[in-house]
C-alpha cells in the first residue's frame, strides 16, 4: 500500500487521484506565488511613495510624510516657461527628431537584413547586437572631443544625430525581428507585378508591421527621453537643455530647500515616458524575444 503511493506511478494506472492532488498543490502553489509577487511589488513601491506624497505636500522634506493638506502648490510653482515648459519642449524636439531619424534608418536597414541571404548578414547582425550594448558612456569623452573639432558642440543637429546613432542598433535589431514575422509570400506577388523592393516595402510590408514599428518607435523615444548623459555633455547653453538635464541642474541649485517642487517636477518629467509606456504595454513583450536571435 505505502510503496504503491511512494513510487511515482504511471498516470494511466492511477487516473483518479492524480488530478485531484495536482489541483490541491496547484491552489496552494498559486497562493504562495501571488504572495511572493505581492511582496516583490511592495518592495518596488516603497521608494516610489516619497515622490508621490512629497509632490502634493507644500512642506515636504526628505522623509515620507502624509501631505496635510493635499495641495497643488508645488506643481504651480514649477509650471513656468523657465523650469518646465522650455526644457520639456526641448526634450520633445530632441527626442522626437532623433526618434524619427532612427526609425527611418532602422526600417531601411531592416529590409535587406530580413529579406536577403548573404554571407555578410550574420557578421553584420552580430556587430549590431554587440553595438546595442556598447557602453555609450565610454565614448562620450571622445565624442565631446570630436564634436568640438566638428563645431557640433551645443547644437541640436549634432545632438540629434548622435542620439539617433546610440538608439539605432537596438532599433535595427527590433525592426528586423518584427519584419521577419511578415511572410515574404505577400511581397512576391507584388514583385511579379513589377514593383521594386522599396515599393513593396512601403506599400505592403510597412502597413503590415505597423504595430511592431510603433513598439520600436515608442521604445526608442522613452529611452532617449530618460537619457541624461548625452545631452549633459553635448549641450551647454541653458536655454537648449532638455528636461533630463534641467531636472538635474534644478536639483543641484535648490538642493535641500524645495523637495516638494523637485518631486512635482520629477513627476511632470516622468509623465510622457509613463504615458507612452501605457500605450505600448500590451504589445511590448513580443519585442523581447531573443530566442533564435543570432541564427542564420
Amino acid at each position: 500500500m505505502t510503496t504503491d503511493v511512494r513510487v511515482p506511478a504511471p498516470s494511466a494506472t492511477l487516473p483518479a487521484p492524480a488530478p485531484r492532488r495536482g489541483r490541491g498543490t496547484a491552489m496552494v502553489g498559486k497562493g504562495a506565488v501571488n504572495a511572493a509577487l505581492i511582496v516583490i511589488a511592495a518592495c518596488y513601491v516603497i521608494p516610489l511613495l516619497w515622490v508621490v506624497l512629497a509632490a502634493f505636500n507644500a512642506t515636504a522634506g526628505l522623509s515620507v510624510s502624509w501631505p496635510d493638506p493635499w495641495t497643488l502648490e508645488n506643481f504651480s510653482a514649477v509650471l513656468d516657461e523657465e523650469t518646465t515648459f522650455r526644457p520639456m519642449r526641448n526634450g520633445f524636439i530632441l527626442c522626437g527628431g532623433a526618434t524619427l531619424l532612427t526609425m527611418l534608418c532602422a526600417v531601411l536597414a531592416a529590409y535587406p537584413l530580413s529579406r536577403y541571404r548573404s554571407r555578410f548578414r550574420r557578421p553584420f547582425l552580430l556587430t549590431i547586437l554587440f553595438m546595442t550594448g556598447l557602453p555609450i558612456t565610454a565614448i562620450m569623452v571622445p565624442v565631446y572631443g570630436l564634436f568640438v573639432q566638428l563645431n557640433l558642440i551645443d547644437t541640436y543637429t549634432g545632438t540629434i544625430l548622435f542620439m539617433s546613432t546610440t538608439a539605432l542598433p537596438i532599433a535595427i535589431w527590433l525592426s528586423k525581428n518584427f519584419m521577419d514575422s511578415v511572410p515574404i509570400e505577400v511581397e512576391e506577388a507584388a514583385w511579379t507585378d513589377g514593383a521594386s523592393a522599396m515599393q513593396a516595402l512601403r506599400t505592403i510590408v510597412l502597413p503590415l508591421m505597423w504595430p511592431g514599428l510603433s513598439v520600436v518607435a515608442l521604445y526608442t523615444f522613452i529611452g532617449l527621453w530618460g537619457n541624461f548623459f548625452v545631452p549633459f555633455v553635448l549641450l551647454q547653453s541653458n536655454d537648449q537643455l532638455p528636461a533630463s538635464v534641467s531636472i538635474y541642474t534644478f536639483f543641484s541649485q535648490y538642493a535641500g530647500v524645495i523637495y516638494g517642487q523637485l518631486a512635482a517636477y520629477s513627476m511632470l518629467y516622468s509623465l510622457p515616458a509613463v504615458l507612452l509606456y501605457l500605450v505600448l504595454s500590451r504589445r511590448l513583450s513580443g519585442a523581447f524575444t531573443f530566442g533564435g536571435s543570432v541564427k542564420g
Binding site: 530618460g226 541624461f228 533630463s244 531636472i247 538635474y248 518629467y269 516622468s270 515616458a273 509613463v274
Partner: peptide, 8 residues
Amino acid sequence: AWVLPEVV
C-alpha cells in the same frame, strides 16, 4: 520603475 528617467 524601468520607464522612469534615470535621474528621477
